[in-house]
Design a protein around this nucleic acid. Structure first.
Lengths: 111, 111
DNA sequence: CAATCATTTCCATTATTCCTGAATTATGGA
DNA sequence: TCCATAATTCAGGAATAATGGAAATGATTG
């Protein structure tokens, strides 16, 4: 991941509403949730939520899939992993061997 | 970690300058860097950098230690780890057993 | 104590982000 | 086709954050 993508992802998460949405989708796992379900669960107005979902999707943290008249959203663990790798890059001045193997494992197996 | 702390950390990182600072400190490892060194390395004005460092420190992502007339800063891996745990909490609807052991290992051994 | 260096604080300006209401697109069913 | 439902887009004003100059604080040296 490069700087701009990381910034998009971090900015997307640096907002209470969007962070709630993302964590809800993480909990939902591979089943994901429809936009309407999310709105109900978190008590958000439809347009506000749509905006949040757009921002999350643009950063790659969330994926959208139309399903009938609903649109279902999923958390993208791979993006999360990439972000973390970026944050930890060259950890400890090149002794990355200590950290990298751990980072490589960060991904939810159930996704 | 609870919501507000996570938001502080994410907002702190969701800024190009601060993200550069944090990553620089991650690379610097346990030796850390003096504010002046950081300013030189990244070409930041002293006051701008000071502001960034304050924000990072307030979120716990960075720790300050006065050393003579300089102030030395260090990346706090533990905070990073807490943040990640928060983001992945209850991953996949309770099957956290799949993710949690991995998350528990995320910490730079050299810190 | 005076001088100097490192960093921070204060303040005003500029830029960005956020929320809301109203209008719009897209899908499925009668 | 007409209607209802699901979700998105757009424009605005309000709130918030970022920047840079100037002054102030804190620590060391002579």
């Amino acid at each position: 991941m490069e700087m701009n993508h990381a910034l998009d992802s971090l900015s997307a998460l640096a907002h209470e509403g969007r962070l709630q949405v993302f964590r809800l989708l993480v909990r939902a796992g591979p089943e994901g949730m429809a936009a309407g379900e999310i709105a109900t669960a978190l008590q958000f107005r439809a347009n506000t939520l749509s905006n949040h979902l757009n921002i999350l999707a643009a950063s790659g943290l969330v994926r959208a899939l139309r399903e009938g008249r609903s649109i279902r959203y999923f958390a993208e663990m791979q993006t999360m992993r990439g972000l973390l790798g970026f944050l930890m890059e060259d950890c400890c001045g090149g002794n990355a061997a200590l950290c990298q193997p751990l980072l490589d494992q960060i991904a939810c197996d159930c996704t």
